[in-house]
């Protein structure tokens, strides 16, 4: 019975997302250069761009699936891997790098047992390495979800991660 309710809820969520995606495709269809704006919006809706979504976009815009896949894999902003509940992005821009961001990255990786581009088994954490988020004044910087943490050192990490582990 409970499982049924869950299935119904999932189905409802799925339908809603699909309807939003169809609206986006409708809005851009026929415009030159439509593919990238549509992918941006699709990633906002789904959080990532799995194969099914790419296929749907290809069909909707009348673009070969190979082109869609080509664009998705070319740009680092687009991802085919879902993000964890908490997405950690350690800035590896130059300013952060010379201030020890590499060490931060290693420590976090060891602590969570994941590498860049991976998601932890419990889907709680994912790890990214963006190139310069433009907050060089506070280097080294990392973001967890939307929160920015600057002027960090490796000793502060344990406490910081602990906050998100609960």
């Amino acid at each position: 019975m409970e499982q049924n309710q869950e299935q119904v809820a999932n189905k409802k969520e799925h339908d809603e997302k699909l309807a939003r995606l169809n609206d986006v495709i409708g809005e851009f269809k026929g415009q030159p250069g439509a593919l990238i704006p549509v992918l941006h919006k699709a990633q906002q809706i789904y959080g990532y761009l799995p194969e099914e979504v790419q296929y749907h976009i290809a069909q909707g815009l009348g673009v070969p699936l190979a082109d869609v896949y080509g664009v998705v894999t070319f740009y680092s902003h687009f991802t085919m891997i879902p993000r964890g509940e908490h997405n950690i992005a350690v800035c590896l821009g130059t300013a952060c790098y010379v201030k020890g961001a590499g060490e931060l990255m290693n420590k976090i990786g060891d602590e969570l047992g994941i590498k860049v581009g991976e998601i932890s088994k419990d889907r709680k954490f994912s790890l990214e390495a963006p190139r310069c988020i433009g907050a060089c004044g506070m280097a080294p910087v990392l973001t967890i979800n939307e929160e920015v943490y600057g002027r960090l050192n490796a000793d502060q990490l344990g406490e910081l991660l602990q906050k998100y582990k609960q």
Binding site: G33, I36, P37, L39, H40, F74, Y75, S76, H77, F78, P130, R131
Partner: peptide, 8 residues
Amino acid sequence: LRLGAGAF
């Protein structure tokens, strides 16, 4: 506006 998608 046109948004880039992270390609240097």
